[in-house]
Design a protein around this nucleic acid. Sequence first.
DNA 1: CGAGGGTTTGAAGTGCATCAAATAGTGTGG
DNA 2: CCACACTATTTGATGCACTTCAAACCCTCG
Lengths: 247, 247
Amino acid sequence: MNDSSKILKILKKAPLFENCDPERVALFATQSSIISVEKGQMLFVHEEPAKRFFLILDGWIKTFRETLDGGQVIVDILPAGEIFGETSLFEGEFYPYSAEAVESSRLISMPLSLLKTEIDQDPKMISAMLTNMARIRREQDRELEHLKIQNAPQRIGCFLLRLTKQEEEGQVKIQLPYDKSLVAARLGMQPETFSRALAKLKDATGLEISGSTILLQDIKQLIHYSCSACSSEFPCKDLTEKSGCNL
Amino acid sequence: MNDSSKILKILKKAPLFENCDPERVALFATQSSIISVEKGQMLFVHEEPAKRFFLILDGWIKTFRETLDGGQVIVDILPAGEIFGETSLFEGEFYPYSAEAVESSRLISMPLSLLKTEIDQDPKMISAMLTNMARIRREQDRELEHLKIQNAPQRIGCFLLRLTKQEEEGQVKIQLPYDKSLVAARLGMQPETFSRALAKLKDATGLEISGSTILLQDIKQLIHYSCSACSSEFPCKDLTEKSGCNL
DNA sequence: CGAGGGTTTGAAGTGCATCAAATAGTGTGG
DNA sequence: CCACACTATTTGATGCACTTCAAACCCTCG
């Protein structure tokens, strides 16, 4: 099986393409390529002209910006299945952030120009973009709320909760997906703060920590601790699938 | 001139409708009404089933959520020209926040059901929704960055800068659009913090405060003070109009 | 004039950041 | 399998930013 048909098979299952006509998805497949990047490798830089967007096959991609006085703000740390760089279409075709692999990763690289023409021609593609944009918007909304009202231990607890499956109950084992200092940065705090806040969370909810594995005695206790400052309880309202909008 | 034709005239100029066919916009006009609300009046409540969305004609509308432990998180404070409630379509047709008039306001109230069918039928309407959603996303993105890296005086400075016109240079007079304590809440800080932070900003940049009027001696000084923690200088990248995406 | 809200100021406390140093953990070459 | 080098994480001490509670002030409007 060549690259192009391999890609096609994957793309057909991606949220952005699943409702599109197969022959249109095939267009993307022929113009795409699978790339591998090492840990630490940059994919693109903030404000550089945007040529391609990406779908993560495996690994983790950090998106971030640098401030004028030399700081770094993490936008997100994206898992397999996510696409990124596609919003450049709405930012004057410049990348709105830099992207770097924080683990060795494999990606599908696709041309933005094609996405642009497809959006203009295929209503299903616009719908998919809109649905996806709405999802991003909702997540940002939740993150804004968290930053405004949760303290460090609560933010960590909330992060842990989002690593669990919705079905899980009672005792739950959680594996941190990447370095603690990276989790700290993702949550907008210092590594030292993360360490101390996690200890505080342990005292408050009785979870057990060993390295990057965390064992919750009772998920309910963590929910009670973390979600009390939020506007809705875990599992935080995520109505993507249930949405009444049949786009 | 009756309500319906008055509304039509206004809608045709609204960002969400300006690219749509006039006869489709007329559909909205016939199913809409102009409403007036007093200061303090609620328009809808978070998680209530969403029936209508709104365009602000004048006044100010606060969108917010209440947390389980009784706090309040402000989502935004919206001026004339903005629409709100329309994202309910992507939230399972429940309002994702509460909305309250913080000044006496006039609004156009439109049925969400119509927006939903129009989105499904009119590609221009999907495009407009997507463009609008992209704009909201970008603004949230900027706000997240600000919350993570700017301190209180910088956030105030940034807020003031956004109240100026881009053309303005040198000495600029700014009028706060609503109560200081509301500005404080909008920026995610306490009124006391706002008061002290504004005083600090005054010391740092030499602006003059009298009541709700603020006089900047030199806008450049404020830009330098506030934007140094950001990833781009004022006027913060806002590429909506310049976007290469001709949706 | 006096009541009431909005705003400022003061004093004290909490949370997070910062700097510095110790400790644990990981991978390497011998 | 061990010792070393290097990185990630934790811990301690201290400072700053923001909050909280309390009280004063100020402004507007009946």
